[in-house]
Design a binder for these strands. Structure first.
Lengths: 145, 145
DNA sequence: TATTGTTATACTCTATAACTATA
DNA sequence: TATAGTTATAGAGTATAACAATA
């Protein structure tokens, strides 16, 4: 194990590399495909189960209004369902529809597939392991920004 | 070393975690501070030296038009300089100005500082090492998307 | 009054198309 | 004609402000 790198250096290289990946991922467009924020919300629902719009916004670190817009698009395409809270008429629980479950469970979004293929073709097992291990660290980092 | 994770799983967790970091980083606003794409361009110039607008766009994986807009903002604030190519009147070399060099070299952008503080406060040396090692892998991944 | 969620509006970052100037 | 770069315009994703409905 090498010595600990300077946090400033780590911040530097992370900001660069992460920016590049996001720009690249966004650049590849697929018709009728879910967008990055949509995919993120769907995966959150799969991992965490049904949730209110406000809770989702908090998890995803975006404003409730933005989440509202994202969910609107998902509902239009039948990927999520809303169940009004019988106790509190203001709230609704958002959950994955049958179609939404299929889409996320099978991981068959073209965007994820493209990245999976790139990983399989150009990275060693050890590197995949490294990237896999880095992901939870990145999630944790996001909480402190 | 654990066995190699499935590339699909790696793609999944990377897309999620990276999205979160970018949204969090963008959410924290600082007046008069360089934006993420601006910072990225400045760092590229520091690492790679003077370059043309087109070359920068290619490195950063954005269109030449977008890079033009980014550079326009940086020039207005005196962070970069343009040197016309004496041989070819169409081209200019972009380089960091004195102010731009200072800003990037000292790493004193508020955004980088915020992330550096978070890393220093909430991550172990081994984790920093892990994140540091993951950055070049992410850059490579971006090339194949 | 406070809370959940939406609608209206605007800003940032990016793209594509059309243009200018130079080669 | 071809290339480097800019200007014009549009779209995605985000934010804040103002509003409606419910508590």
């Amino acid at each position: 194990m090498a010595e600990a790198p300077d946090p400033g250096d780590v911040a530097h290289v992370l900001l660069s590399s992460i920016g590049l990946v996001v720009r690249s991922a966004r650049r590849s467009k697929f018709d009728g495909e879910v967008s990055l924020p949509e995919l993120s919300a769907l995966k959150r629902l799969e991992r965490g189960g049904p949730a209110t719009s406000a809770a989702l916004a908090k998890y995803e670190q975006i404003s409730p209004q933005s989440m509202s817009a994202t969910l609107g698009g998902l509902e239009t395409r039948g990927l999520i369902e809303r169940t009004p809270d019988p106790q509190d008429g203001r709230q609704s629980m958002i959950s994955l529809s049958e179609a939404g479950q299929q889409l996320v469970r099978t991981g068959r979004t073209k965007r994820t597939e493209l990245m999976a293929r790139a990983l399989a073709a150009h990275f060693t097992a050890a590197e995949l392991e490294q990237l896999f291990a880095a992901a939870p660290l990145l999630e944790r980092l996001a909480l402190y920004l």
